[in-house]
Amino acid sequence: MEIGMLLLLVAGIAVLLAIFLYFVPLGLWFSAQLSKVRISLLQLVLMRWRKVPPKVIVNALIEGTKAGLILNRDELEAHYLAGGHVAQVTHALVSASKANIELGFKMATAIDLAGRDVYEAVQMSVIPKVINTPPVTAVSKDGIQLIARARVTVRANIRQLVGGAGEETVLARVGEGIVSSIGSNESHKTVLENPDYISRVVLEKGLDAGTAFEILSIDIADIDIGKNIGAVLQTDQADADLKIAQAKAEERRAMAVALEQENKALAQEMSAKVIEAEAEVPRAMAEAFRNGQLGIMDYYRMKNIEADTSMRENIANPKDKGKKK
């Protein structure tokens, strides 16, 4: 029973000691004093109550002090509470100081809060980064398609990291410059002979304006010959012209057929009128006989004329006469 009580007492003391050391980090304070970082135990305790991890702040102060930087504890706490990365900012400040890059605490925290990796940006300022562009397709004035690939060497522009455009914008502008430079050449052979011409033209355009990077060089890695776009376009145009001509010819044929049908209808209408008129002749003659306007001799004379006309037609067209028989 006494052993159980003793174990319980020891456990209670251990829990109390852990709670005490959590709120009063003696080990962390001792490390800060050895590193010549001026910070009191009370300040560490208050950090706990403000929900700021003392270890993050103290380690940042120690790193900055050892690197010869003067960091403010309140500013580090404020940056942490704002959602920033204190350790990344401290690493970036130390690296910038060693590389003689001008980078202040406010600028570093602003870059960090903007969502960019400030430490990586400082490293990129020291060691440039190479970006490979995707295949860029362009057509020279002679209609030959060229497919170019380039390597863009950039370094971070610290002052433009906040609000500056990213890698996608740089690649888009470089691609646009390659298309423009190839398209301005009279022949694709000129481009193949002098690929460095593309690099010079693109660099002169100042494509890094407003971006978070500074373009150091643009090197054409590879150029391939694609299709003969000019020939393809001419072929397509010829096919289109042929289809248009066929459509117009079909339209003219349809109009001719319609006109022929209309003429046939008019002819049939005229023939019907002639037949109708011929049918009225006997009635007219009978009416003339009744009225005394036509005599029997006039009738025989007309018949003789018809017989004579028929004979002359048969003599003139013997073939038609045979067909009629």
Rank of each mutant, 00 (worst) to 15 (best):
M47R: 06
M47Q: 08
M47G: 09
R48A: 08
R48H: 14
W49L: 12
W49K: 09
W49G: 10
W49M: 15
W49Y: 09
R50H: 05
R50V: 06
R50N: 06
K51W: 07
K51D: 06
V52W: 03
P53F: 10
P53G: 04
K55S: 15
K55R: 10
I57M: 01
V58P: 07
V58S: 03
V58M: 09
N59D: 14
N59P: 04
L61M: 08
L61R: 00
L61N: 01
L61E: 01
I62Q: 00
I62E: 05
I62W: 02
E63A: 07
E63L: 03
E63H: 00
G64T: 00
G64Y: 00
T65S: 15
K66G: 01
K66P: 02
A67Y: 07
G68F: 04
G68W: 04
G68N: 05
L69T: 12
L69Y: 14
L71K: 03
L71T: 01
N72Y: 11
D74L: 15
D74A: 14
D74H: 13
E75R: 15
E75S: 13
L76T: 12
L76N: 12
E77K: 08
A78N: 13
A78R: 15
A78S: 15
H79W: 06
H79K: 09
Y80A: 11
Y80L: 10
L81W: 08
A82H: 01
A82N: 05
A82D: 09
A82K: 13
G83T: 08
G84A: 02
G84K: 04
G84E: 07
G84W: 04
G84Q: 02
G84T: 04
H85D: 14
H85N: 15
H85E: 13
